[in-house]
């Protein structure tokens, strides 16, 4: 049962921001609604007004801009899954998007909506953390860039102001000697654990020049685990393989796992380690190939 609300339909980001500022915390951006409307139907939240940003032109494009991909925040998961630009430059994002929720949710839900809602059991944020992505937030008075590792504040809470609209996700294209994987596990509709690993190898592809480890779903928010990265950085790929158990233990502990329907905290910590090791093994094979 959805309680009545008012709909505002601005045609520019400025108008949207002004509407959001006018309503304050009694309004919310509507960018697909696959998460928001579920929470509203359950009566968990109510907003007097939804600001439909989907009539604003130009927020659903994907384009390559030098070494980065700029993804319009209103791109649906399905559009990203089928984007040739992404398939070419960032296949790991296409694979992740292909496995988000189900077909119908992917047809309607948008990447910007997914990130802003900050549902802990979600896939994109974790991968975007490992890719060093940033998001662009705009409001009537200007715009700012927010690095992904400052974006998630807590469960259902992102670092976006009341009158800001997330407009773009900017993802640096991984280098020639880099490989990235996102691995998840779950038996419910939403993922129970998600792990992203981004290994930047040296030119000879023998050692880990730099690395990103991100964990999601198991705790209140997706996060980068720099302590786990430190264990792997600078090691040869062989040494890194031997250090995966330690890195996985650190990542599991750092992720702030909670016990819930998806499993106990201890179980989730173990799964994080397993997924991280599998991601590394796949990356190693890719770098060797």
């Amino acid at each position: 049962m959805l309680r009545p609300f008012r709909l505002e339909e601005p045609e520019s980001v400025k108008e949207a921001s002004e509407a959001l500022a006018r309503y304050g915390d009694s309004a919310k951006v509507y960018a697909g609604g696959t998460e928001l409307l579920l929470a509203m139907k359950e009566g968990l939240v109510h907003f007097e007004c939804l600001v439909n940003v989907k009539k604003i032109p130009g927020l659903d494009e994907v384009r390559r801009d030098n070494g980065s991909l700029r993804i319009g925040a209103l791109s649906t998961h399905r559009e990203l899954e089928r984007s040739e630009t992404l398939a070419d430059a960032l296949p790991v994002l296409v694979e992740m998007e292909h496995n988000v929720a189900n077909l119908r949710v992917r047809e309607v839900g948008t990447l910007g909506g997914n990130l802003t809602f900050a549902e802990p059991h979600a896939d994109p944020g974790t991968l975007l953390l490992a890719l060093d992505a940033t998001v662009v937030a705009q409001k009537a008075g200007g715009e700012r860039e927010i690095p992904m590792n400052e974006f998630f504040v807590d469960a259902y809470e992102a670092a976006i102001e009341e009158d800001e609209v997330l407009t773009e996700i900017v993802v640096p294209v991984p280098g020639a000697n880099a490989a990235v994987r996102y691995r998840k596990f779950g038996y419910l509709e939403r993922p129970s654990a998600g792990v992203a690993l981004h290994v930047m190898a040296d030119d000879a592809r023998r050692s880990v020049r730099d690395v990103r480890v991100a964990v999601g779903c198991v705790g209140p928010k997706s996060m980068r685990v720099e302590e786990a990265e430190a264990v792997l950085r600078g090691k040869s790929l062989d040494e890194a393989a031997n250090a995966m158990a330690e890195a996985g233990d650190i990542a599991g502990r750092a992720a702030d796992a909670i016990s819930d329907l998806h499993g106990s905290a201890e179980y989730k910590e173990h799964i994080v380690k397993v997924l991280l090791t599998r991601a590394f093994n796949d990356i190693r094979a890719e770098l060797a190939g």
Partner: peptide
């Protein structure tokens, strides 16, 4: 809750969960 697909309709040929779509 958009999980089961029993409410599926095609909107311009694309499948949607009509139970959660305004």
């Amino acid at each position: 809750v958009q999980v089961c697909g029993a409410c599926t309709l095609l909107l311009d040929g694309r499948p949607v969960s009509s139970c959660t779509l305004p």
